[in-house]
Every structure is written in C-alpha cells, then in structure tokens.
Write a protein that binds this DNA or RNA. Structure first.
Lengths: 184, 184
DNA sequence: GTCTATAGTAAGATAGAC
DNA sequence: GTCTATCTTACTATAGAC
C-alpha cells in the first residue's frame, strides 16, 4: 500500500517527539509507518537525518500557515487572536499528552541542519508573537519579553506534563497564556 | 588511575544532559570519564540504566541537601531564601549553558525506575518550593501554582536557551524568579 | 579496579527482485 | 514504490588477564 507523504510525516512527527532523535530507531519508524526500511530510504535517501528535517520543515510550515495565522488577522481583537493560537497548540500537543518536537529534536547530537531548523522555528514563533503583542500597544522590548516568556512556559509545561504523566500543567499554562501575554 | 565515584557521577551527569539517555553511548561515556567500558561495568553492573539512575539519585540528593536547603532556613526573609535557591540553580546549569537533566533523562524509552526518579525529583522540588511560598503567607493552592509555574519557567528557559544557543533567556527567568514566586 | 579483546545484538543503510 | 535479504558499523555487554 502506498501512503501519502503527509501521512508518513504525521507518523514520523509522533515517533520523533515520543522517542527523541536518537531514540527513534529505523525499526521503530518502519513499524509505526507500516513501511519497510528500504521503502523509507526510497522516500528519504538521506536516512533518519532527512526524515527529521522533513518533520521539522513541516512543523515550521504548520506554524507559519496554521498556528500563527490567527495572530495576523487584524479584524479580530488581539485576545481572540492569541486564543485562536492556543487552540492550535492544544490540538498539536493533544492537550499536553504529546511531547514537544522542538525539545525532542534539539537534544543530543542532532545535525547542524536540524539545529538551524529548530532555531528558525523558535525564532519565527517568537517573532510573530512579539509582533502581535506589540501591535496591541506594548513597547517592542516588552512585547518581545512577553512572547519569549509565553514560549518558555509552553515548552516547560510540556516537560512538566511529560514527567508527571499529567497533562494538567500544560492545560493550565495554555489557559493562562492570553493573560500572560496581554495582562498587566 | 582510580577515580572517585563522585568524579565519575559529575562526568556522567554532563554526558547525559548533553546527549540524552539514548544519545549517550558507552563509548562516549568511556571517553568522557577516561575509563574503559569494562571498568564502567565493574562499577555499574546494571550498565547504562544503572548509570542514569545513579546520576538521577545524586541529582535528587543535591536538590535535597543543597539547592532546597536555603528554603528551609526560617531565619532569613523568604525572598533571600528563594534567591539563594536560584544561585544554586545558576551554578548547576552554569548560567544556562548546560541542559536540563530532568528533560534529558525523561525523554525516549527511559526505564520505569528512571521515570519514577525524575518524577520524584520534580515532586520534591515543587513540594518544597510550594511549602516555602505558603509559609510566606500565600494560600496552599496559590503557592502550589506559583511553585509549579516557577519550575515550568526554569525547564522551558533551559530548552529555549539550548535551542537558541544563548544563555540569556535562562538568566532572565532566574533573575525574575523571586518576583514570579512572591510578587503580586 | 583497571585493562584489551571479543562476543552478540541492533543500529543505519543498501542491493536487487518484483 | 514496495519488499526481502544483506552489508557494515556501532552498540551494549562480557570474559579473562594483570
């Protein structure tokens, strides 16, 4: 059976964020996707490194074309825009039951291309979030700090939720994110 | 040359938090410690799993006997106690240049014993921090939320700093931790 | 308690048939 | 584009000498 590239990338994303880059063996990937290892190499001649880069590229595209889109909709109140972003995050992380992709792919001896991609994704997220907050009337620097703190809370909450085996900390952070970004 | 158990655990801690559990190969551990693989097995018959558990156990002891000690010193103002804890964290994480051990050892297929140890360490930290905040006059539930949020910020900041290759986010979070815990 | 040497296994990756 | 079978390497772990 022939799977679509999209279906494979969804599965790869799950495997990488569950096991991390090193922990995700080709055997595990083959089993999760239902494809033989040779078939994976047919689609990703660069092997596991290319698979991880494809996953990260798709994550950046998702950030750019889905999660961050509501932030740019100036017809909505800023608080609603932020709220729409948190709903996308909630879906991507399944309310805290899935681990963070940026974390999983930035640990260990990830290649330099992958490192750059995780950094770019983080910068994209932080930049657009800061711009949205600044557009709400905050100073550039204040907005940048609020955006950085929001992202920090999301990343941290995903770790705390994973370690505790309890999605509640992530849900709490997500619920308080609009106030964190726009309050005070 | 015979290294002390403590010297080995210091090195193991560094290797595990740099590469993660899966990424830390015995070859890398042997090179970092200067011991042959067989010598490592002499000291840790349970192999890599036992090494990681020993590292995590030492981290819990450090938390209990070093980092959290100032929190219990009721002769000092609460803000100074929290500040003393942040100084210990700053030293352990070398101002954000070292990754988070709890993160590195909780990702992937870490054994159930290791999982329990990371969770226990997190609970110990959260519990004592919440108790200290509560002793400053906050309600139990409010104190627990503030403690959870502080730990979330520290974890998240370590990830952001690692991805960006810039310790500044971690330093900022640490500097704002007393206000985060006790302000408002 | 250290080492060299090696066993046994699982990893990433490839060849070639269909 | 898929597969089975295989190659090579690197891994975890052990044996046995000093």
């Amino acid at each position: 059976m022939v799977l679509s590239e999209e279906q494979i990338l969804v599965t790869l994303t799950d495997v990488f964020r569950q096991y991390g880059y090193e922990g995700a063996s080709l055997a595990a990937i083959a089993e999760a996707t239902g494809l033989a290892k040779a078939s994976l190499y047919h689609r990703f001649p660069g092997g596991k490194a290319q698979m991880a880069e494809a996953v990260m590229d798709r994550a950046r595209v998702w950030l750019d074309t889905v999660a961050l889109v509501p932030l740019r909709d100036q017809s909505l109140p800023i608080r609603d825009r932020v709220l729409a972003m948190t709903r996308q995050l909630d879906a991507f992380y399944q309310s805290g039951e899935k681990s963070c992709l940026l974390d999983a792919l930035s640990i260990g001896e990830a290649g330099s291309a992958l490192r750059r991609m995780t950094r770019d994704a983080l910068d994209l997220w932080a930049g657009e979030l800061a711009a949205a907050v600044a557009a709400a009337g905050y100073g550039e620097e204040d907005a940048a700090r609020r955006a950085e703190r929001a992202i920090t809370l999301v990343q941290g909450a995903l770790i705390v939720s994973r370690i505790k085996g309890d999605p509640a900390p992530f849900r709490r952070v997500l619920a308080e994110l609009p106030e964190q970004l726009l309050g005070g």
